Structure formats: structure tokens, C-alpha cells
Amino acid sequence: MSDNISYTTEEIAKLLKISKLTVYDLIKKGELPSYRVGKQMRVDAIDLEAYKQRTKGIKIAARPIVVDPLVPFNPSASTNGLRPIVITGQDISLDVLANHIEKTISGVRPLRSFVGSLDSLISMYRGESDIVSTHLLDGDTGEYNLPYIRKLLVGSSYLVVNLLLRWAGFYVQQGNPHQIRGWNDLKRQGIRLANREKGSGARVLLDEQLRLHGIQPNQIQGYASEESNHLGVAGKVSSGEADVGVGIEKAASIVSNVEFIPLIQERYDLVMMRKPANRIWIEHVIQILKSDAFQNELRAIPGYDLSLTGQVLYET
């Protein structure tokens, strides 16, 4: 088997017939050595084969592990001498954060997992992620994130830090031909929706607003049609396959023939588990969030409000 062959996490999941989250768990535990190329995590074929042989009870010599003094040595959590930090979410700001972590914190390797807010919190509860991003609206209180975090991470020790504020709202075609302005317009006959997948922040926002406005999902044409990201929703609107979709402002600036109608400013927060082994890198992450270098890079991206960035909003 050639040492030059490598696989993505999706390919590993298919080859082993397991979920992608299980792949991340194997990587986090150090059972599958990995590295990052751009936005992708990759596993070399030789390491995949070694893992398969070990599961069959065949002893394979492990690759050498270099211990960094920044990270308390834990063989089950080491990958090629680096402690992997799985960061969940889809916003580009998380890629910027991952780059800063890689450049400024020694002994760790940031890995990206592109999953929605609810799935991110569940993965943290299962011990499968380290930095979780979330933007979940509780319609009854108007509060973002904390009601969900408290319920899902009950009994855990964690802290919640703001990453940024951003606008969420409607994508409509240029010129807004259907004159869609607010949530009640979704009741109108013939309005076609491009929806997000269950568990995403945009889907939770929509479902909470439908509940508060007394709109039944089965009243809306296209409610069952799901896209996995904001660009997918905006693309459906742009092509005329849908009249409206819910998402963030940035996607509308990327996709042609799409106009954005702001409806709510959402708080996009990070959650990190407070464990002795995490203490040092968490301190460094907060320093990065507050740094001029990180914030200046985000300021170059339209649509972000950094007035709360780096503030600890809640901790247990």
C-alpha cells in the first residue's frame, strides 16, 4: 500500500461502514493518526491499515509520539505528537480561528467538523468535540444558546465565549418579487421555501418563529426540502427553485441574484469544556479571540459585529 494515499473522514466512514462522528472519535482518541490539509482532515492509508490490523488483534508498532510540554501527556489523546482539537460549525470565522490556533498554540492540531449547532452540542456531550459553535434561539425567552447548552451539557463544567454577532434573515430573489418581509408572509399560498437540515441554527430559528407565529410547517411548500448549508439555501432561491430561505447575511453576498432581508441579530458563541487537560489551550483560545490580529482579520469580512468577541458569557 502506497504511503502517498490518504483518505478524508467521509471516505474513512464509508470504508469502515461507521458514522463520521465515530471517525472523529477515533481521531480524537489517537487511534487514527490524522492531519489537516486546508479545510479537510486526512488519514494516511498506512495508518488506516494499521488501525484495521489492530482491531483484528494483530500487533502493529505505533508511530513515534513526541510529547509537548504544553499538553499533559495522554497517549489516547495524542496524534503524531499533537493533541487534536475538533472545532465544529460552518462559519468562515471558525476557519480563521483554526488557522490562528495552528500558528500560535504549540502542541495542538485544530481539526474542523462541519456540523450544525445541535449536533455540535451533542457531539460535545459525547466527548467527540472540543470547541463547539452554536447559534440556537430559544423563542420563549429570546435568549441565544444558553437554554440549549444548560439542558444538553447538564452536570458538565464548561464556559461559553462569544465569537461574534451576525444577522440572520430571509434570502429572496433580487428585487423581492414576492414582497416577502416577515415571518407571517410564510403563510401565504404558493410561497416555496428552501429549508435547512434539522439541528442547524437556521432550522431552529425557523421552527421557533413558526411556533410563535402559529404557522404549521405543513402549510409551507418545500418545508421538507433540506439543504446542508447557507449557500445551498441561497442557491435554491437564486435559481428560482424556491422563493425564500432562512440564513445568514454573508451567503447572500456570495450568491448572485439573491437579496438579504435582516430579521434578527444572532449571537454566535463558542462552548469549551473546563477540564484540567484543556486549561492551557482554552486560555490561549480566549487570548486569540481578543487579539487585534484575529479581530482585524474578521473585520475584513462583511456582516460581523465583534462588540462581544472574546467575552466569557457564562461558565460553570
Results as ranks from 00 to 15, higher is better:
L164A: 09
V96D: 03
Q174Y: 07
V86W: 00
A277L: 07
P75Y: 06
Y268I: 14
Q53P: 01
A45R: 05
N145M: 06
S133A: 15
L146M: 10
T79K: 01
L205Q: 01
G247C: 12
V86Q: 01
Q189I: 09
P217G: 11
Y7C: 07
I215K: 03
Q295P: 00
N195V: 03
Q221A: 13
V154K: 15
L97Y: 02
I122P: 09
P75L: 15
D68H: 13
G214T: 05
R63I: 12
K236G: 04
V312M: 10
Y158V: 07
L118Y: 06
Q265E: 11
R299C: 09
E241K: 14
V161M: 06
Y304E: 00
Y7F: 15
P33S: 05
V255G: 04
R299G: 09
Y7M: 08
L298R: 03
L121Q: 02
R203T: 04
I58R: 08
Y24D: 00
I65A: 12
G169W: 00
G57Q: 08
A194N: 02
G142E: 05
P302C: 04
T8R: 03
F260K: 04
L21V: 09
G201H: 01
L206H: 00
R274S: 07
E259A: 11
E143N: 09
E49S: 15
R211S: 11
A168V: 14
G303E: 04
K14A: 13
I105W: 04
L210M: 13
K151C: 08
R196G: 12
Y171W: 11
A61D: 15
A202E: 14
N74E: 13
S239G: 09
A234D: 02
S78Y: 15
I286T: 05
G169P: 06
L205H: 02
S117V: 10
L270P: 05
G310V: 03
R150S: 12
A62D: 13
V285Y: 02
Q216Y: 13
M273D: 01
I122M: 10
P75M: 13
R36L: 11
T104F: 05
M1Y: 07
S225A: 15
A62T: 14
R150L: 13
S78I: 10
L163Y: 02
S129D: 04
M272C: 06
L26E: 05
H178W: 09
L212V: 10
N218D: 11
S200G: 08
I131G: 02
S307W: 04
I58E: 07
V154L: 15
I65R: 03
G30D: 03
A234G: 10
S117W: 03
L270N: 00
G142I: 08
N80K: 08
Y223G: 05
S78W: 09
V285I: 15
I18R: 08
S76G: 09
I264A: 10
I149L: 07
A251N: 04
